[in-house]
């Protein structure tokens, strides 16, 4: 589903973000991408949802070379990928319901579809009673649930979570991670970029370690950085 072949990414300011990354993520997999801040985790995510293209090597998503994708194809590529961030990215003047409906509205969904799909997904993430609340009236965990619901409402094949628990306390982090695991169990491929050691160690999922732009480990049994990796990071 996602394949990186000798991928390098250098930004125009000549900062090397990724160097010779090779990886293959299968359909329905749950993968952690771990490593220190600035190590290249977010850049790896950006390549998947085509917010950047590799300066060397190739990235295939849904069997398509993202570098050969035309500009007008990008929106349709992104409709198959849900993305959530540490800083939530919610519209402050819209309610939780409206924020989620927004993702459907830009695809031209009808009022009836919105009325059916949004309550369904809100129920699924546990926000049924918060439909009319504005973001500032929601806790951090609830805001992240709204983001997850917005990402899920389009029924994506891949869910990318870039530091989804970065702004949350441990209990709420666990709730969000449980939710992501549930999403994965429904058949969605989930990629979580994090530097939260506890989260990675608790869930024991496949873990890819990235440091200074290089993939230094790919552990199917999971687990955060070992002593050697931490020393190299």
């Amino acid at each position: 589903m996602i394949k990186f072949v000798s991928v390098g990414l250098t930004y125009p300011n000549l900062v090397n973000c990724l160097r010779n990354v090779n990886l293959h993520i299968q359909k329905q997999e749950f993968v952690f991408v771990v490593g220190p801040t600035g190590g290249g985790k977010s850049s790896l995510m950006k390549l998947i949802y085509r917010d950047a293209i590799p300066t060397s090597g190739k990235v295939f998503v849904f069997n398509k070379d993202i570098a050969k994708m035309r500009i007008r194809e990008i929106p349709f590529h992104r409709r198959r990928i849900g993305v959530i961030f540490q800083d939530f990215l919610l519209l402050p003047h819209k309610t939780a319901f409206e924020n989620i409906a927004y993702a459907l509205q830009i695809r031209g969904a009808s009022g009836r579809q919105i009325g059916q799909l949004v309550p369904e997904v809100m129920d699924w993430v546990g926000l049924t009673k918060r439909q009319k609340s504005y973001p500032h009236q929601l806790s951090g965990g609830e805001q992240q649930r709204v983001c997850i619901a917005r990402a899920l409402v389009n029924k994506p094949d891949i869910l990318l979570a870039d530091e989804p628990t970065g702004n949350l306390d441990p209990d709420t982090s666990k709730e969000i991670m449980d939710l992501l695991v549930r999403i994965n169990s429904r058949g969605t491929t989930v990629v979580v970029a994090t530097h939260d050691e506890n989260v990675v160690n608790d869930y024991r999922k496949r873990t890819i370690v990235i440091s200074q732009g290089q993939m230094i480990a790919d552990r199917t049994e999971g687990g955060y950085l070992n002593a050697e990796e931490a020393a190299n990071a």
């Binding site: 949802y49 007008r72 929106p75 992104r78 830009i106 695809r107 389009n154």
Partner: peptide
């Protein structure tokens, strides 16, 4: 947000 959720 529009870009991320696939707006043209």
């Amino acid at each position: 947000i529009m870009q991320l959720v696939g707006a043209t």
